[in-house]
Write a protein that binds this DNA or RNA. Structure first.
Length: 283
DNA sequence: CTCGATCCCTGGACGC
DNA sequence: TGCGTCCAGGGATCGA
């Protein structure tokens, strides 16, 4: 379940090997997760990678414009979302191909870029600069970068549950189920509290918890639960630091109360019923 | 505006 | 062994 730290880990791995490389050829397996796969297969070969960056949970691979001059709407980015089970590797093409590998890019250094996605909840598309701009406009600021005033405004103006707001990507982007639960536990906020009923102090505590946890998780190369592996095929280590997520029936690290699991916003939500008191029910 | 339900897809865990 | 059921949970969409 790649969230911001896992995507950032993948991006850092790719940034070390992809810039400057030319894509020589492409081979596709199943394509139902690709937007306009025929066009993508036609346009990608010949392009060179300029840079790799992250936008929320999206990976954007910037391509060097083709000669002579790019049109205003040139498709200059290969945009990838890993969904639930997406994985990217680069390496020797002679290495065994994992099941559910659906995109192969031959690179000019002899390596092969592979995209593997068991459940195909991921996405891949060629995008223009304006598509990227629309994405940034439609979605909230990056969870790592948003400042106190903007976070307070985005959260405080909504009557939705805080867990739903964190997962929704519109208030703030990059957070998924694991880091939502971890940051709410750290900030002692119940997942079903409403955004506009958090105090300014609680909102800021939550923002700090979120950013601190995300930064530490990036240092530890993300959380490997289920099958997340970075671009080198290495698992992350942050799952050892989980304090709430996946700990139903185990004791809270702060108060020894048993961690509970409830469904909020349609997702499993792990929390400490003592540290994170439930909101008062009101009609 | 916010909600839950449903769908996309596969594999692993578990009960019988 | 094998089968059925549930769960994982990112995101779009639709109706209440």
């Amino acid at each position: 379940m790649p969230e911001l730290p896992e995507v950032e880990t993948v991006v850092r791995g790719l940034r070390a090997v992809l810039p400057g490389r030319q894509i020589l050829s492409i081979r596709l397996g199943k394509t139902d997760f690709i937007d306009e796969p025929i066009l993508l297969a036609e346009l990608l070969p010949g392009h060179r990678v300029a840079d790799v960056s992250r936008c929320g949970k999206f990976i954007s691979i910037e391509l060097t414009p083709r000669e002579p001059e790019p049109s205003a709407d040139a498709r200059q980015y290969l945009v990838i979302h890993l969904g639930m089970t997406g994985r990217i590797t680069t390496g020797n093409p002679s290495e065994p191909v994992p099941a559910h590998t659906h995109v192969f890019l031959a690179l000019d250094d002899g390596n092969e870029f592979r995209y593997t996605d068991t459940r195909r909840f991921g996405q891949m598309r060629l995008a223009s600069q304006s598509w990227i701009d629309d994405l940034r406009a439609r979605w909230g600021e990056d969870a790592l970068e948003i400042n106190a005033a903007n976070f307070a405004r985005k959260i405080g103006s909504r009557a939705a549950r805080i867990k739903a707001l964190l997962l929704g990507q519109h208030a703030v982007s990059g957070i998924g189920n694991i880091y939502a639960d971890e940051s709410l536990w750290r900030a002692k906020i119940h997942p079903a509290r409403l955004g506009n009923r958090l105090s300014a102090r609680e909102a800021e505590t939550l923002r700090k918890a979120l950013q601190d946890i995300l930064k530490k998780a990036i240092v530890m190369r993300g959380s490997s639960i289920s099958d997340f592996l970075d671009a080198d095929g290495e698992p992350g280590e942050y799952q050892r630091r989980h304090r709430a997520y996946g700990r139903e029936g185990e004791r809270c690290y702060r108060c020894r109360t048993l961690i509970r699991r409830i469904i909020v916003a349609g997702r499993s939500s792990y929390f400490c019923p003592k540290c994170q008191p439930a909101p008062r029910r009101r009609k």
